[in-house]
């Protein structure tokens, strides 16, 4: 039966209810504690390193995000690893738990469309993650103010805001995926396992597999190897393949946005560097331009995965 009226009728109610459920749930508390504690450890190490090594740096605040002190990776790298975990943890049982509790037909008996239910649940998940990431972002700036004592400049704030936006969309990709799986699989355990499997594959295995596949496509040239250089074809293929992983897209976008001296993310030819002034920071707009393709990839991936889930959900039998 065709829908009458707006697809968004009832989105607000679902959104508010889901958000309050999310925020007050024990699962969310555990995930937040995990992220906050790990990120704080990385941040503390970064602050210690920066305080000991007081070189003049126009982007001191951004260094808080990117400085890594062994054995801990940098703040951004930890977020790149843990944001998917948080998104999967929020999303893996969005729909199938309603099925299992037999509450779905009861909800849909209310004047709420399926669109609104799905969108409301999704937006509530995304809002939960956005709230925690914003809190984390404010924490970084606050700790930077307290321990480094340098007020952040406008461009630093703009760049770290870009970081926040990209991180939210990065979470959106994984939330879309987890929601899609929660629609496909009736059992939450299966959905969670599959989601975690994909996450592990893309985060841990894919960076190792991509160079191997690239070398199979374009075998390395021994002449380049003799000079200690990467074969350009292999390098280009490796990068292309690695970009299938949202993790890599997030890492590249963060590199461009948080390290203002980054001038390109792809392989560089010598004649492109000739005459270039090295180490000069790029204007914010240009850094965003460099990170833009990666950001577009994340946003488009979020939307496409959501649409896939939407189509599947709309075609599903609700009555159990």
């Amino acid at each position: 039966m065709r829908r009458e009226g707006s697809a968004f009728q009832g989105v607000g109610a679902v959104f508010v209810k889901e958000l309050s459920d999310n925020i007050s749930s024990v699962r969310m508390l555990m995930l937040e504690l995990l992220i906050v504690l790990t990120a704080m450890a990385a941040l503390y190490e970064a602050i210690t390193a920066l305080r000991q090594n007081t070189a003049e740096d126009p982007f001191l605040l951004l260094r808080l995000f990117t400085v890594s002190q062994a054995p801990l990776p940098s703040f951004v790298a930890i977020l790149g690893f843990l944001i998917p975990l948080m998104a999967i943890g929020l999303g893996f049982d969005l729909i199938n738990s309603e099925h299992n509790r037999r509450t779905l037909s009861r909800i849909l008996a209310q004047p709420i469309y399926r669109d609104a239910l799905l969108l409301g649940k999704y937006l509530a998940g995304l809002a939960t993650i956005t709230i925690s990431l914003t809190a984390l972002w404010l924490l970084v700036i606050g700790l930077g103010l307290i321990f480094l004592g340098v007020p952040p400049g406008g461009e630093e704030i703009a760049r770290s805001l870009a970081f926040l936006v990209i991180a939210v969309f990065y979470a959106g990709v994984w939330l879309s995926l987890a929601m899609l799986l929660s629609i496909v699989f009736r059992s939450p355990a299966t959905a969670a396992l599959v989601a975690l499997g994909i996450w592990l594959f893309l985060t841990v295995l894919w960076p190792m597999l991509a160079p191997a596949i690239a070398q199979a496509i374009v075998p390395p040239d021994p002449r380049f190897a003799a000079l200690g250089l990467d074969t350009p074809g292999t390098a280009i293929w490796t990068q292309l393949l690695q970009r299938f992983s949202p993790n890599d897209l997030f890492g590249e976008a963060m590199l461009a946005v948080l390290s203002p001296t980054t001038r390109t993310l792809g392989p560089v030819f010598l004649d492109q560097i000739r005459g270039a002034v090295m180490g000069a920071p790029l204007p914010f707009g240009q850094s965003v331009m460099i990170a833009w393709p990666q950001t577009v990839g994340l946003i488009a991936c979020t939307i496409v995965l959501f649409v896939a889930g939407y189509v599947l959900f709309q075609r599903q039998e609700v009555r159990a």
């Binding site: 039966m1 065709r2 829908r3 697809a7 849909l108 469309y113 399926r114 669109d115 833009w292 393709p293 950001t295 577009v296 946003i299 488009a300 939307i303 496409v304 959501f306 649409v307 939407y310 189509v311 709309q314 075609r315």
Partner: peptide, 23 residues
Amino acid sequence: AGAGVIGVALLLMLGAVARFGRR
């Protein structure tokens, strides 16, 4: 072009909402 890609994805969503929207 990137904005265009996002626009296409949004159109896809609108199309799906229009095509599959039901009670």
